[in-house]
Design a protein around this nucleic acid. Structure first.
Lengths: 193, 193
DNA sequence: TTAAAATGAATGAACATTCATTTATTAATA
DNA sequence: TATTAATAAATGAATGTTCATTCATTTTAA
């Protein structure tokens, strides 16, 4: 046998990728800059990924998975629809406060025509949204007029946009407060009625 | 005297810039590709702008101006707050249906950390938002808990996101229907209460 | 010892930007 | 009216840089 892949190196690579995609956009984040930032050889990531596009999509998949795994869990052990939404938003904000780069990364990539999100990710997301909608409907807590797309937009996109608006308004201290969460939930509750 | 600047050439350049920023993101839209797409010499836009960043910001300013000039007008001759919002959304959709590239361009650039929107544009936008909020408040049509940031997010960002979600779901026929508008307004009305 | 991990120099393509040259237009002149 | 001079618009070849990607070589740990 021989050496084992240095996982720390992979982690550095992932973090630098997110950082540079946020700072320069998907198209502006070059392999050279990412490698330099991660303190890794310039050709390093080709050993693990076919190219920049695949790497970014793999990282995105992990971030999505992290988010939706918890969401799935919250939904399966849910008491009420409203309570589930509350917990989802709290979870999202927790990620935002511990690893803001992840939420910025989602923000940048979800509003990009040049970057096509893996169809599997999209499918999983909308499967979840559909389950959530059914739960809301069956418990009479969700306005019948609200579609899957609406729910995705309001719950997922809006939350990402809200958090990033806070980041942009307040580049110094990036933490999202409990008051902010309350406010987000207040707005969210109006929507679902 | 000599030649006059060919305005058609400038228009082609602007259109190609929007198109390529949408297709490849701000960082991925190269000067070479833009010039080629516009059928203009590679060094052409340096005669009119200092560089890509300035050019994109100038075009963005024009798009914003077009939107907010109409919004200003609607607000100054407004009958009711709700009616004004309706007309604003209709105007936005009209732009989306005649020149979808403009709304896609806004979509791409408003969710980008690499591209810093001119402070003047931001200031003008929030001046307008503030006026609109005052109108809503004074006529008792706007929830007191809604801040300027909320209104910006809900009215402006949400509308852009909604329209682009339609584009992405339906890449063939890109038109936003009257039903879509009704639905958007339905959701909007819930927000402002 | 050995085999996989990791490196980084090397490649050619694409990049942003410059500017000497060419082209088109108008006003002055014949 | 036809010709020419003047001048600004527009071009695109040329520059040096950075890009994505490859792979022969070196490093490291089992």
């Amino acid at each position: 046998m021989a050496r084992i892949t240095d996982q720390n190196k992979i982690e550095r690579l992932k973090h630098s990728t997110m950082k540079l995609v946020v700072e320069h956009g998907f198209g502006g984040a070059s392999a050279a800059l990412i490698a330099k930032d991660a303190k890794v050889a310039s050709g390093y990531f080709y050993l693990h990924y076919k190219g920049k596009y695949e790497m970014v999509n793999a990282i995105l998949q992990e971030v999505y998975q992290e988010v939706f795994e918890k969401f799935d869990q919250l939904l399966s052990e849910a008491s009420s629809f409203i309570d589930t939404l509350n917990k989802m938003v709290h979870h999202f904000v927790r990620i935002a406060n511990t690893e803001p780069i992840k939420v910025k990364f989602l923000y940048v990539l979800t509003s990009d025509y040049s970057f096509v999100i893996d169809p599997q990710i999209r499918e999983d997301t909308f499967k979840f949204i559909s389950r959530l909608k059914d739960f809301g409907r069956s418990s009479g807590s969700l306005d019948e007029a609200i579609t899957d797309d609406d729910l995705y937009l309001i719950l997922f996109i809006n939350t990402i946009q809200f958090i990033n608006q806070r980041y942009k308004n307040n580049p110094k201290r990036e933490s999202i407060s409990e008051e902010d969460i309350e406010h987000m939930l207040y707005l969210l509750n109006k929507f679902i009625r």
